[in-house]
């Protein structure tokens, strides 16, 4: 019988495959830890975040396959929301849509534009995408006015700062881990 294997390239029964699964779980745990630690830091504005968990995603791009990275992103968002207590709430829907859209853009960029962008540039673009998608969703679905367009410059600048920080952290991880 033929199996189509989705997430794990090697069979889980071999020790190599097991190590791979454990490594993916380890990366997901690190991402969850960073996301929750960041959530604990008091911030003046709720959407003002660095996105340190994104550094793990970036680091994962450099060593494992795209679908495994997607698994890390999904489990990070779901587990973080479960631990914080916002599962299936508005913030969860926003954060999962932002995370998935920025993952799609970053994986395309990492596959095809690696000559042009380093991890920092990919991280900035991912952060900008995530923030803009969340803002446009809020505007299109929940607010239905043009007020939140006034936040676009601020959101762009915050994404730039957070993207540079998490990009540098991801590069540090990929060089030293």
């Amino acid at each position: 019988m033929q199996y189509k294997k989705f997430y794990i390239s090697d069979s889980i029964k071999t020790s190599v495959g097991q190590k791979r699964v454990f490594f993916i779980a380890f990366l997901a745990t690190m991402a969850i830890f960073l996301a929750i630690a960041e959530h604990m830091i008091p911030k003046p504005l709720p959407w003002m975040r660095i996105g340190l968990a994104n550094a793990i995603t970036l680091y994962a791009f450099t060593i494992i396959k795209k679908r495994e990275v997607f698994l890390i992103v999904l489990s990070r968002v779901v587990a973080t929301s479960l631990l914080i207590g916002s599962f299936m709430s508005l913030g969860f829907l926003l954060s999962i849509s932002g995370a998935v859209s920025s993952f799609i853009l970053m994986s395309i960029l990492y596959s095809y534009c690696r000559k042009v962008f380093s991890l920092v540039g990919i991280s900035i673009l991912g952060a900008v995408t995530s923030n803009l998608v969340q803002l446009l969703l809020v505007n299109a679905v929940f607010v239905r006015s043009s007020i939140s367009y006034y936040f676009i410059p601020m959101v762009l600048l915050l994404a730039l700062a957070g993207g540079i920080l998490s990009g540098l952290f991801g590069r540090f991880l990929s060089e030293n881990l």
């Binding site: 534009c113 042009v116 676009i152």
Partner: peptide, 24 residues
């Protein structure tokens, strides 16, 4: 994957330019 690449600077400048333009 060592240092910054030209695209990085382009992205930074572009984001700052768009934000400044919208603010203005």
């Amino acid at each position: 994957m060592k240092r910054f690449k030209p695209g990085d600077y382009a992205v930074m400048v572009l984001v700052i330019a768009v934000a400044t333009f919208l603010l203005y």
